[in-house]
Write a protein that binds this DNA or RNA. Structure first.
Lengths: 249, 249
DNA sequence: CGAATAGTTGAGGTGGCTCAAATTTTGTGG
DNA sequence: CCACAAAATTTGAGCCACCTCAACTATTCG
């Protein structure tokens, strides 16, 4: 459960008592297999779902049958986009890897944010950061290489923020294509291209970063929109700090 | 000032006393000429700006020099995307028509939402609806005609929500292009195309809807993501209700 | 009435698409 | 541990929606 607690701690001044109170409101825990839906469209309910482990994505099937992925979700993220505030669900969430989730009743959120305003503030902030990600993805017509590179930068930084450093990015090329709004064929060619450039590992089936600095450069990536404090502190002068960030492994 | 009040009243149960209290916190009023910036990037401040009259847009200049518009703003909208919650401003706001704005101190927001939790809830909801618009714009690779049509549907509905019905949509083709992520040339051709189809008025320099039903059909527009109560009630069965909505003029 | 600003037109180029098939990897049951 | 099915990745070929560049025309406004 502390996946959520860890995140919120970064978003406002919250003491352990408050976090503890929040954590105890999550009771049930459910496991979802890769490929299965965590939430479906139109499901309106009295509780919210939070991701504990694994990677999920929020998506929608558009008219032509394509799947559009809006955002990726990591441990600590609210799957349902705060259905507590806006009950209408216009997108579904599915598990990209094995996942486990837990739920909290809306009335519990209401009660606890009334008691601890700081918690409410942190949750509100969290929704705004999500919006910030949507906005960044919008940025019009990045060419394919830059677009894929940007997506990979974002996932790398978000994974690091939850302590997963230097591993492969746990999603398929199809997932990436659906998030980037590119065809799988072109996505594949772009990835091969990045491998050629030495930016992604070769030989590997998985997608793994080989040369972080160059990836950032290609993506013209600036992590500030993610508002992750640990990252922000290193991001004031883009170039060399990303470098520092990866010198660990 | 009641531009904001009108909007919030739709988002939560708020009584007049609460709205009144909020309204009185806005003191100064400022007029901005078409084309001028209301907010610039990086401006961090102790107050939030609300649009009272006119139309504005939130945008960013991307690397290649293009202007990417993220969203349009109408009376009652917070220009700064609730800098109260997330102070970092990564985009600017400029006036597309003559505008007037007013400001409220962050500490006043803090005080009043503490006193009236319903107001806080309404504001939070408002941010989520904005996010919902970002998400909708993301929807991958709509072809140009559908994309422009969708944008026009959204603006029409949002204008109606603030009582402006049946007029021209107050923005240039360049604005539209920058919002749609299309070149101005192609935007122009697409608009001519829509005029050919009888969907937009001909002969006019302005962009004005001639045939609402068909526009909705082309756009595959479903207004639910806007979460405007007066509209939602008419939108359960898409086809004929939009029709009703426009039978006024 | 001249200078911006906004809109329109033509021509040629290309990034990313679709379709279709092959190959490789992963997962599953025996 | 193998064999087969399913999923993921790769390759080739042709095409078109949208782009860029570059001019010209209409409108607005001081």
């Amino acid at each position: 459960m502390h996946a959520l607690a860890r995140k919120l701690r970064n978003l406002a001044t919250i003491d352990d008592e408050e976090l503890q109170a929040l954590v105890t409101m999550f009771r049930t825990k459910r496991n979802i297999r890769r490929g299965d839906d965590i939430l479906t469209i139109g499901s309106s309910s009295a509780y919210s779902t939070v991701l504990l482990q694994g990677v999920a994505c929020r998506y929608k099937i558009v008219e032509n049958g394509r799947r559009q992925i809006f955002t990726f979700q990591y441990p600590g993220d609210f799957c349902d986009g705060y259905s507590y505030i806006l009950p209408t669900q216009d997108s579904a969430v599915s598990a990209l890897t094995e996942c486990s989730v837990s739920i909290i009743q809306h009335k519990d959120i209401e009660r606890i944010t009334a008691t601890f305003p700081n918690l409410g503030l942190a949750l509100w902030r969290d929704t705004m950061i999500e919006a910030s990600i949507f906005r960044e993805w919008n940025v019009g017509q990045r060419p394919a290489r830059e677009r894929i590179a940007h997506l990979l930068c974002e996932q790398t930084v978000r994974l690091e923020a939850i302590g997963i450093i230097g591993g492969a990015i746990p999603m398929t090329q199809v997932d990436l294509a659906d998030a980037a709004g590119l065809s799988t064929v072109h996505t594949n060619r772009t990835i091969q291209d990045l491998r050629q450039l030495g930016v992604l590992l070769r030989n590997r089936r998985a997608i793994a970063v080989a040369h972080w600095d160059r990836l950032v450069e290609i993506a013209k990536f600036d992590a500030r929109y993610l508002n992750i404090p640990q990252v922000l502190s290193k991001w004031s002068s883009p170039a060399q700090i990303c470098h520092d960030a990866r010198n660990l492994h």
